[in-house]
Write a protein that binds this DNA or RNA. Sequence first.
RNA 1: GGCGGCAUAGCCAAGUGGUAAGGCGGAGGUCUGCAAAACCUCUAUUCCCCAGUUCGAAUCUGGGUGCCGCCUCCA
Length: 467
Amino acid sequence: MALRFKNSFTRTKEEFRPIDEGKVRMYTCGPTVYNYAHIGNFRTYMFEDLLRRYLKYKGYDVTQVMNLTDIDDKTIRDSQKEGVSLKEFTDRYTKAFFEDIDSLGIERAEYYPPATEHIPEMVVLIQKLVENGLAYEVDGNYYFRISAFKDYGKLAHIDMDGLKAGARVAADEYEKDSVSDFALWKAWDEADGDVYWETELGKGRPGWHIECSAMSMKYLGETFDIHTGGVDNMFPHHENEIAQSEGATGKKFVNFWMHSEYLIVEGRRMSKSAGNFYTLRDLMEKGFSGVAVRYLLLSTHYRQQLNFTLTGLDAARKALERYLDFISNLADYVGGVSSGGEAEQVIRKVKSGFEDALDDDLNISGAMGVIYDFIRDINRLKAEDRLSIEERDQALETIRKIDTVLNFTYNEANLDIDEEIDSLIAQRTEARKNKDFALADKIRDDLIARGIILEDTAQGVKWKRKV
RNA sequence: GGCGGCAUAGCCAAGUGGUAAGGCGGAGGUCUGCAAAACCUCUAUUCCCCAGUUCGAAUCUGGGUGCCGCCUCCA
């Protein structure tokens, strides 16, 4: 089956073909570094991680760019509130962002351009828009003239004439030609303090949308393959990016637009302004691991709203445990007789099922379904001692290949041997030998309280950390 | 007012014309000192409601009900 993605632009599933054979260039809207990112943000980054990992699994050479918005109203406001420089402020949250994506096993993009390091590129782009008659200046502010760009609204399918002139239009934007025109460059005012750039456009700072146009085209070219973000970015942000980019180059900006749905919490919309959000750090403080959060965020299809609950996170943790135990127990399996071709069939089935599902617009639920079928089938052969060493190795190789996409095993490196635990296990083994089960069980319970789970197997005592 | 999405078991969720995947939870069993892990069996006569098309519909059409999102800087 061919790889197909739902293209938000055409609103249909289309076969994916990159511009350059074997290479994919993608731009993923990144964080505004003014706070710890919440799990809704990470839901989107997780979808993008799945996308890039699956593209790599399919053999594509992926170049991904994720911007870091380190200059906007919020970063200025909050850094001033704290009395620290913009740089010091945004550096702190940039660092936190990278720590968090590491905790979640999200693979690094090739480029993380910060907006503040690309002011000259933005200025050039704005000048070009002025030249093309698509931008105008009022008191040092530059705006994009939407009425001059005839395709405006084609991504979000919004008819500008039909827009309700509503209460959400800020009162202080009266100087624009049209309320819908958006800012490309904002002239300095006192509230900006020492945050400004002296440029050919004057003293000021960029608008929000322009950074994505400038930086995406710098690193990926004027036309590239995939652009992603949360659905809320579709309008106006992505619509504006198209207007800015195509208005400047006259070329098609992006071939495939992909948008992830919201994560909601207990059935309600989560947002930074509503204050009902969980950061990754909040969940880790409650004792959940990054990989459990990863499992939850990854295992719901990206175009489906994900209703986050702590109960759901716990269910995800348990399902993940089954997956991890499968791999770990399979690796320890000493082998039995050959299954006579059954294992091979099971392996073939999971490979094709996994790929067919993900080829179909990243249908992760379908993919997880066939993986759990595979786990049960192999475990059954194991239970019947009908899995040879060779077959075991093939099964292991298969699940590990699959795991390059899912990446649920990245915490395994943490399972380093702890001398104290070994010594307690030895004490317990001795107690069991002496039929002192009360002591043996106490040691086991104490370890469980510390997140260490013991299993008595035919090959001896195994231990693992709670995920 | 405009645009769009969703409704499948206690919970999460796949399935877009051929007779309901998978996970969590629950019940019983095998194994075990007891557990854990694993395996086996069971857990939706049915997919929000009504009507229609069809040999056949969770899937298509029409109508209804309920929930949600976007409509100018929120992933």
